[in-house]
């Protein structure tokens, strides 16, 4: 059976711009969010996502369909981001605190739903910012796998494909990554007693 995705890819290979536009439309949110979580800030995410789509467009004729298009796309995005992060590691330019301030910037919009107590809302946003910060301070391979699995919610098989790893490696690395993140978040004192107890009870 030929999926819609495959059809679009075929049309793209024939040079139909409209088909690529549809593909972008389908995946821009995933791509942008993956780039955002990997890079940790929105400006870079924008640039990286654009870069990734450009690479996909240029290379789409070489796409053989050995894996699904989305897997291939994620692999490209991941590589683009990691390349960027590696060069960034040599020349750090962005502060890790940056996401925190931008999260606060979104405060007014989020408050308007009115369902939550404003104080709780602030706390919730700060917690998210702190989690992102924790993820950013993970080493590259741990961050990648956490983002792909626990944020982007991709299946293990796809992750193994994207990262070119065996299934077992993906699982064990994910486990180690979570333990590492746990100790970081613990150092940041993000775990509250009652939450821990609640989390411990339910499985």
């Amino acid at each position: 059976m030929v999926s819609r995705e495959d059809l679009l890819v075929q049309r793209c290979k024939r040079g139909e711009t409209g088909a690529f536009d549809e593909l972008v439309q389908l995946y821009e949110k995933k791509v942008y969010n993956l780039a955002f979580r990997l890079s940790g800030n929105r400006e870079d995410a924008y640039d990286l996502a654009q870069e990734a789509f450009v690479r996909v467009y240029n290379a789409i004729r070489d796409f053989r369909g050995q894996s699904s298009f989305s897997t291939w796309l994620y692999r490209v995005v991941t590589n683009v981001c990691l390349d960027q992060l590696r060069s960034r590691a040599r020349h750090p330019v962005t502060s890790l605190d940056e996401p925190l301030s931008t999260e606060k910037g979104e405060l007014p919009r989020q408050v308007t739903d009115g369902a939550l107590d404003p104080e709780e809302e602030i706390e919730r946003l700060e917690l998210k910012a702190a989690v992102q910060k924790g993820i950013n301070s993970l080493k590259e391979e741990y961050r990648t796998i956490i983002v792909l699995r626990d944020i982007q919610d991709l299946p293990y098989e796809d992750i193994a494909d994207i990262l070119n790893l065996s299934l077992g490696t993906v699982k064990s690395r994910l486990n180690r990554a979570r333990l590492a993140l746990r100790s970081i978040l613990s150092d940041m004192e993000l775990f509250r007693e009652d939450d821990v107890r609640r989390a411990g009870i339910s499985r």
Partner: peptide
Amino acid sequence: AEYRQTVGMC
């Protein structure tokens, strides 16, 4: 518990 919460936070 913390492991679970870590995953939950993500």
